[in-house]
Design a protein around this nucleic acid. Structure first.
Length: 595
RNA sequence: GGUCCCGUAGCUCAACUGGAUAGAGCAUCUGCCUUCUAAGCAGACGGUUUCGGGUUCGAGUCCCGACGGGACUGCCA
């Protein structure tokens, strides 16, 4: 049994013995003892006073004496105001290190022991490259997938690709007008960059045409609707929806370029998907099911033909599900996609959508509609809503050219990692390929950690000029200490020793920060999974690393004074590297052996 | 107008969900490499947790109200 649960159970028994009142184990609040007081765990006794009908410190004193007298790890106690500090048997923690923490599955729940969950992250449009916002989205979603998997869930990672609509038609039209047959091969451009280039070209041509029309005396609003190139794009969309062979062929070609480009970016990012969904496959399903809903009386069709759902009973408004011309809106597509997924994965317990917080209203509506359609899973579906990544001058705007490109940013990170390493001359023994691998791991760790460590729901600031740091509370700091720990363990093996399995010195106050954090791991993972919050894992990784870094600095490990101290320090180092590797792996961050 | 989120050190972020003296990093300053990787360690400086009420043994955390920032409230996606 976990320590806190054990202490709660013992405390409930002790309380019953002392005061004749039976309380639930959960009513005893157990927390770590602050380092300025002697003890390992503290029971807060203020809330118990009304049940014991005695003052908090009297209650604490009686409870403490009873606990010390029981069979169990508690060997001493002291009371400060209403806080009961419990001291544990000195061998408790060395046994814990040698047994529980040594298990290969420490911090890992058995696969398949929790329900099947689908996690969607990344929902790119196919008309432009991935940017900083996608990075936060993907790193978060990917990490949540891994955390849920770690807690025993079966996880299906999916991407929804918005491959149809006016945006891609704009790129198509511009490519036809200005492209002169340019391809990724002929231009040397990544496919997504090439298509993005024509999306920009469309916008420029469109603005020029609007300006011309206004010059000719047309009102601006009218001109914005009448610009020939826009009409051209709208006509292209209609032809696509009619299944016109040439239009569909060009659409497939240009989307194909984009997918090839995305694949490269995803590979560099180190994220992957189990199944891809395309909106072009799902919007018609959604439309059909909405029309079925009308027949079942769930939704209402108005005289003009548009279909609405009435959510006023749920505190929301009426919401459009189909336009008057019968075409699908965003909501229709999402309904179709959701239904298709429940059909594809029959045992699916819930879906998690990693999407920015500007769509909170949308997902409230979606889940209500899914519930109306009879999906009991809807109440467990979750919108993993995250805040915007803001630049010092505000939101990223493609029109103002302030979009931070994902590929460029990652390359920049790799470059900084390379410069720092080369300046220190640390990788001189490695060949080029090995060095490149280290730069990528270090650079990517800086970026991923930076984006994941912030509470997802908060907006965050990214200043391209200040760039991302490699010192202090950063990914590279964590990697650096992992590398130091691994280096010690390699040297140990080099001396022909192996990891001690006994004979540890009794851990003292110097060790307890580190041990306490190692012991927290399962609880941190539980909470991160329950709240879909990887930042908790990131912060735990940092706290653990900081504790180790400090410990490492003033405790020689291989040259410790006594055999017992050496054993303890080696075991701590091994547990540190293994738990850290687990935690960082859940963030999607791969650790190097050297740096 | 309505709904939701946020507001903590000069800056970027924490705070085990109501517990003891609110913690890190960056920046500034001071020490520490002949020793397991100094992308490091130790220390100094820095706070009326936006403001005002309330709830209670106890509030950064919960409730009410102001102020400030953001998002949503489109037959766009």
């Amino acid at each position: 049994m976990r320590l806190d649960a054990l202490l709660q159970t013992l405390a409930a028994r002790a309380f019953s013995d002392c005061f004749g009142t039976d309380l639930e184990a959960g009513q005893f609040s157990v927390q770590k003892t602050r380092s300025e007081f002697p003890g390992d765990r503290t029971i807060v006794c203020f809330p118990l006073a009304r049940f014991s009908k005695a003052a908090p410190d009297t209650t604490a004193e009686a409870l403490g004496q009873a606990l010390v007298g029981m069979d169990g790890p508690v060997t001493g106690h002291n009371v400060v105001k209403g806080f009961l500090n419990l001291e544990l048997d000195p061998t408790y923690w060395s046994n814990w290190l040698l047994e529980d923490a040594a298990a290969a599955d420490y911090g890992i729940e058995a696969p398949g022991s929790a329900p099947h969950v689908m996690v969607e992250y990344s929902s790119p449009n196919t008309n432009k490259p991935l940017h900083l916002g996608h990075l936060r989205n993907n790193f978060l979603g990917h990490s949540v997938s891994r955390i849920l998997e770690n807690r025993g869930h079966t996880v299906t990672k999916v991407q929804i690709i918005n491959d149809r609509g006016i945006h891609i038609c704009k790129s198509m039209v511009a490519w036809q007008r200005f492209g002169q047959g340019e391809t990724p091969e002929s231009s040397g451009l990544k496919g997504d960059k090439l298509v993005g280039k024509y999306y920009v070209a469309f916008d420029q041509a469109y603005k020029a045409e609007v300006a011309d029309l206004v010059e000719g005396g047309m009102a601006k609003e009218e001109a914005e609707k009448a610009a020939p190139i826009l009409l051209n794009a709208q006509e292209t969309l209609r032809r696509w929806e009619d299944g016109d062979a040439d239009t569909v062929a060009l659409w497939k070609t240009m989307n194909g370029w984009v997918y090839t480009g995305f694949d490269i970016t995803y590979a560099t990012m180190g994220v992957e998907f189990d199944t891809l969904y395309y909106e072009s496959d799902t919007y018609l399903i959604g439309r059909d099911r909405v029309l079925e809903g009308v027949e079942r009386g769930l939704f209402q069709q108005r005289e003009d033909g548009s279909v609405w759902v009435d959510l006023t009973g749920d505190g929301l408004d009426e919401k459009l599900l189909l336009r008057k011309d019968g075409t699908a809106v965003y909501m229709t597509q999402d309904i179709g996609t959701a239904l298709l997924r429940f059909q594809d994965v029959p045992d699916l317990d819930r879906q998690v959508y990693t999407v920015g917080n500007e769509q909170e209203y949308h997902f409230k509506v979606l889940f209500l509609v899914l519930a109306k359609l009879g999906f009991e899973q809807a109440e467990r579906c979750h919108h993993l809503s995250y805040g915007m990544v803001e630049l010092p001058e505000g939101k990223m705007k493609s029109r103002e050219g302030t979009v931070v490109d994902a590929d460029d940013l990652m390359e920049e990170m790799f470059g900084i990692a390379r410069d720092i390493a080369q300046e220190a001359g640390k990788l001189d023994g490695l060949d080029d390929e090995e060095q490149r691998d280290v730069f990528q791991r270090v650079g990517l760790s800086a970026l991923k950690y930076y984006l994941i460590k912030v509470d997802p729901k908060k907006n965050m600031m990214f200043d391209p000029k200040a760039s991302i740091d490699f010192y202090g509370n950063t990914g590279p700091f964590i990697l650096f200490n992992y590398v130091r720990g691994r280096s010690v363990l390699r040297k140990m093996e080099g001396h022909g020793s192996s990891l001690p399995t006994g004979g540890l010195a009794t851990p003292g106050t110097d060790e307890m920060d580190l041990i306490g954090l190692l012991h927290d791991l399962p609880d941190v993972l539980d909470e991160a999974a329950e709240t879909y919050n990887p930042s908790l894992v990131a912060n735990w990784c940092y706290d653990l690393t900081k504790a180790y870094s400090s410990y490492y600095q003033d405790h020689p490990i291989l040259t410790a004074d006594s055999e017992e101290d050496r054993n303890l320090r080696l075991v701590l180092t091994e547990r540190f590297t293994r738990c850290l590797n687990l935690g960082m792996g859940l963030l999607g961050i791969a650790l190097p052996e050297r740096m």
